[in-house]
Structure formats: structure tokens, C-alpha cells
Write a protein that binds this DNA or RNA. Structure first.
Lengths: 148, 148
DNA sequence: GTAACTGCAAACCTTTTGCAGCTTG
DNA sequence: CAAGCTGCAAAAGGTTTGCAGTTAC
């Protein structure tokens, strides 16, 4: 990880801005999420940190869940669920939101460029009088590799 | 339920066509799903049948799950998960597929007319070489009632 | 110093499974 | 009659919680 100190500082700021106490565990979960370009399960985060860190530095799975919860509540992270099993997956909230193509055979996840619903929410809001907050779109299919 | 016998016959045919053995339990679950205009959880189906039927006629929750599984495999029913909790919800497969608006406060579910992704899948398929099977779209917001 | 966080173990909730007995075709 | 379905109870898998000890501010 290049420029570690800078990252730490940025994280500390981000946490402070959101009233989130700055702990090692939170840094680690956040840092790991930042290094992923895909939605990941709580379990995957737990495993990744388990491997990366010394035994005594492990982040407990409950802590992972609690930390994720806080991140979600503060809108640093989004929580979704998709695919064939219905585990929750987490992803760093990015200003430019994304959708994914999921392969039903190998579960590979591919991000889609652009959002086909741009503009749609507004017309929907007018039609239904809902105040629209967000949408979740996932597309299921078979990836090129698995088509054989 | 009007025209009960006709419904039963239709169901029997539908089951036969799909090689699904025709049992009381399956009829009941299917019938209940047909009476819902919304996606429902396995538990909700179980509860509904529990109330509707005599004690001895209850459909066991495991059976509900097993029956739903069969319906899903035979594409009579779709399984999804959405909203704030991540339970699976089931809905009769309708030729014209639908999406829903979900109120994050009261969990009310409103069906949306039309699909904003018509035509999108094809261009996506060309761009990614995925064979696209289906998509899942749910929109979250606050319903008019809860906006106060 | 104190409020908040963490680890651990146990609880919880939805979903799945093994088995013995019953139903359907 | 045989194959397959159901109920029951128990297990499984993901997620949450209570509590006692530790840490950040």
C-alpha cells in the first residue's frame, strides 16, 4: 500500500467527520474495503484480515459486522444482497454508484459502466409520489468463460 | 374463491405439465401465492395457511420451503430478496415481469408499471459478451404516507 | 476518567436436512 | 406398489447480542 500515512490520515479525518471513533479494527475493515473493487461478504473481510494480520491482531467476526453496521449507517458503505445465495455484501460507497453483472455459474462479479436508470427515478417519483432514496439493480447471466 | 373447481383443474394441469406431483400442500401454497399481488416470505405463507386451515391441515414450514423450491426450479415462482432485512421473498412468476418500490419506513410494497430496462439488456450483452438471463431491480424510498 | 469499542460465547432467525411414516399416480 | 412427499426435530449458516475487559478521546 503506497503512501500509508496519507491513507491513515484521510481515514482518520473521514471517521472524525462522521463521529466515528478511530480504532485499529475500523481502519482495517475500511482499508480492506477500499482495496476491493467488488462487493464482499462480512466473512470474506474476516478471512482476508485473518490472513493478513498476526494472530493476535485478528478482527473478530462480530466486530466486522458491528463495524460494517456503523459504516452503513454513516453511508460510507452500502449493503446489498444478490446472487444465488442471499448473504449480505458490502462495498465502499462511491460517489458514482455502480451495478453488477453476476455469473450464475461461477459467481464472478463484473461492474457495469454507467447506470441505465439515470433520469428514470425522477419520472417515477412524479408518478408515484414516493421520495426515492436509492435503487438496487443486479443483472444475472452467464459469463463468456462459463458459456462453454 | 370463485370457481374453485376450475382453479383446481388448472392447477392440476400446470403441475402435471411440469412433472410436479399434485398434493394438497402444493395446491395450498400455489393458491395462496396466486392470491397475493406481492412478493411474500416463506414465513408469511406459513402463517397465512396456518390461520386459514384447521389445525390438522397445517402445512409445515419445511414443506413450504420445499414446495417453493420446486416451484422456483420449475419457473412457476420467482425468488428474490430485498428491503432492509434480507429474507427471501417469493412471487408467482408472471409473464410480464415487474419491479417494486419499497418504503424503507413501513416496508409497503408497490408494483411499478413497466420495466425501465427494456432493450437495455441487449446492448449490455453485446458490450460484455455475457448471456443475460434476468435482472433484479428494486427501488427504495419513502411512501407518501410516511413522508410526514 | 468515562463512554464507547472489542472479543468471546451464546443466542437468534431463516433455511436446510435426515428420517420414519404417509400419499399419489 | 414404488417413488416421492410430508411432518417433526434437529442442524446448519449467517447475523446479532450480552457481558466483562480494554481502548480512544
Amino acid at each position: 500500500m503506497v503512501n500509508k500515512q496519507k491513507n491513515l490520515d484521510e481515514m482518520a479525518n473521514l471517521f472524525k467527520k462522521n463521529g466515528i471513533k478511530n480504532t485499529k479494527q475500523r481502519q482495517r475493515v475500511f482499508d480492506y474495503l477500499a482495496s476491493c473493487n467488488q462487493p464482499v461478504t462480512a466473512d470474506a473481510i474476516y478471512d482476508a484480515l485473518k490472513i493478513e494480520l498476526l494472530n493476535d491482531d485478528r478482527v473478530n467476526l462480530s466486530t466486522v459486522y458491528r463495524v460494517l453496521d456503523i459504516f452503513v449507517k454513516n453511508r460510507l458503505v452500502t449493503k446489498t444482497s444478490f446472487g444465488n445465495d442471499y448473504k449480505a455484501v458490502f462495498e465502499l460507497y462511491r460517489v458514482e454508484h455502480r451495478h453488477h453483472l453476476i455469473c450464475v455459474r461461477c459467481n464472478a462479479i463484473t461492474a457495469i459502466k454507467g447506470c441505465p436508470l439515470k433520469g428514470y427515478e425522477q419520472s417515477l417519483s412524479q408518478a408515484t409520489h414516493f421520495k426515492i432514496l436509492e435503487h438496487r439493480l443486479e443483472i444475472l447471466g452467464v459469463c463468456p468463460k462459463c458459456q462453454n
